[in-house]
Amino acid sequence: MLDHRFTRAHASDYLDGELDPAERQRVERHTSVCPKCRQALEALRRTLTALRGLRSERRDDLAAGVIDHLRRVP
């Protein structure tokens, strides 16, 4: 039960590489034997991958509009 809670609470830190080695091993040990936590971790990993894909293309025309605005302001 404690490992379930630990894994769920630290899933983000695990995926961000922000756990220390002992904590990381704890998550990996637990997800190797717990299908539910493994699934939850994988779902979060896929969510983060999808979120990265939301980053929009550059819009080079924006800067020109801002600069034009700044030049007009008294």
């Binding site: 609470a9 899933a11 983000s12 830190d13 922000e18 299908p35 699934q39 994988e42 779902a43 979060l44 896929r46 969510t47 983060l48 999808a50 979120l51």
Partner: peptide
């Protein structure tokens, strides 16, 4: 910040759960 980030991520994950196609095993 990390606490809010995790809660936000979990809410997004829940909202798009049906699109994620995570293997069940």
């Amino acid at each position: 910040f990390k606490s809010r980030l995790h809660r936000g991520r979990m809410a997004v994950r829940k909202a798009i759960d049906s699109y994620l196609d995570v293997p069940s095993s």
